[in-house]
């Protein structure tokens, strides 16, 4: 019951959170010294034509009215049309979101797979030489600029060793997709060559995103393990003669992972919205690159659509994290 009310509570906050987010972005986008009517009308349009466009799109109305109209359109599933691609924003986002999601999901998985075992190991061997080495490595991992890391990985694995492709999602021009997730499409079609190509292409961008994220996971897991390992419950389990492996991987890890799971949720959101550098370096056709182009071209509708999309995903992921945490530690849902 507590769990259900927690979910209901979070869902209730979903809409006002997004409206607040949109309000901020809407105001910020209107501060930029660019007239959207001029952009939409074309560079050679006369003043009268620009005014016609201004009236047609409602840019002549007071900001609060424009915002309410925008919310009304969103409620009808209309995010507007991009000034530059001339396509509905919904279509633009739908064609790019899978690429970013695929990259982000892989990165979070790799970060968890690397970070959690290492974090447990460091927590169990606190202040040992290997703990110190790993702490230095993880601090360095946090400090590494993803741009630099991406180029180093490209240089080593693509240029020097020739093991992995330099950029793109797949060999050649991407085929028509079913889900937009290249690996899932390849699996659906049972195309082994495509599966191999998609896997080879995703390795370097995933590692670039995952390595700094793994550093965060190591630190939080380590702290969690240290906090739990000396607790009375673990002392009791040890006194009861439970095998150490069982104590660590079942009881300690479960209690220690609360903060880590929260971090993984945050990391997912950060990577989703912040993968732009990695997408740019690896020519990965995702949302980040689209957002940057839209900002540079002052494509208001596209910027707001991107914000809404990533904001909604971020809120949704946080909801999932809360549910997962409640499952791990039911006391939190109370």
């Amino acid at each position: 019951m507590n769990w259900l009310s927690m979910v209901a509570n979070r869902l209730l906050w979903f809409v006002p959170t997004l409206v607040g987010l949109l309000a901020i972005v809407f105001l910020l986008s209107r501060v930029i010294p660019v007239d959207p009517a001029v952009l939409a009308a074309g560079e050679n349009a006369s003043a009268e034509q620009v005014q016609q466009v201004r009236e047609r799109f409602g840019f002549d109305k007071p900001l609060p009215v424009q915002f309410v109209n925008y919310l009304r359109d969103i409620a009808q599933g209309n995010l507007g049309t991009s000034l530059f691609t001339q396509q509905p924003i919904v279509d633009d986002l739908a064609s790019r979101l899978p690429a970013t999601l695929e990259l982000t999901i892989f990165a979070v998985l790799i970060a968890g797979l690397i970070g959690i075992p290492l974090g447990v190991f460091c927590g169990l061997h606190r202040n040992s030489w290997i703990d110190h080495v790993l702490r230095v490595v993880t601090v360095s991992g946090l400090a590494v600029a993803s741009f630099w890391l991406a180029m180093q990985l490209q240089f080593l694995f693509s240029m020097k060793l020739g093991w992995l492709p330099l950029s793109g999602r797949i060999e050649g021009f991407p085929p028509e997709t079913v889900t937009g997730l290249m690996l899932v499409d390849a699996l659906i079609e049972g195309d082994r060559e495509m599966i191999g190509s998609a896997l080879r292409h995703i390795v370097l961008p995933t590692l670039t995103l995952a390595l700094p994220a793994a550093a965060t996971v190591v630190r939080f897991t380590r702290n969690g393990v240290i906090g739990v390992i000396n607790s009375p419950s673990v002392a009791y389990q040890t006194a009861m003669g439970f095998p150490r492996r069982l104590i660590v991987w079942k009881y300690v890890l479960r209690m220690a992972l609360t903060a880590t799971v929260t971090q993984l949720g945050l990391i997912f959101g950060i990577l989703l919205a912040g993968a732009v550098v990695v997408e740019t370096v690896f020519d990965w056709p995702g949302l980040g690159a689209y957002a940057v182009r839209s900002i540079l071209q002052s494509d208001y509708n596209a910027v707001m659509g991107f914000t809404l999309c990533t904001g909604a995903l971020f809120v949704f992921i946080n909801l999932l994290v809360d549910m997962l945490q409640a499952a791990i530690d039911p006391r939190g849902a109370a």
């Binding site: 180029m151 490209q154 240089f155 492709p165 330099l166 950029s167 021009f173 740019t280 370096v281 020519d283």
Partner: peptide, 20 residues
């Protein structure tokens, strides 16, 4: 013909060197 958008200069340069 295949015309691709590759925004990052370094990637374009490395791709030329590799023959991509």
């Amino acid at each position: 013909l295949e015309f691709r958008t590759v925004l990052e200069t370094n990637t374009r340069v490395l791709g030329l060197i590799r023959g991509d």
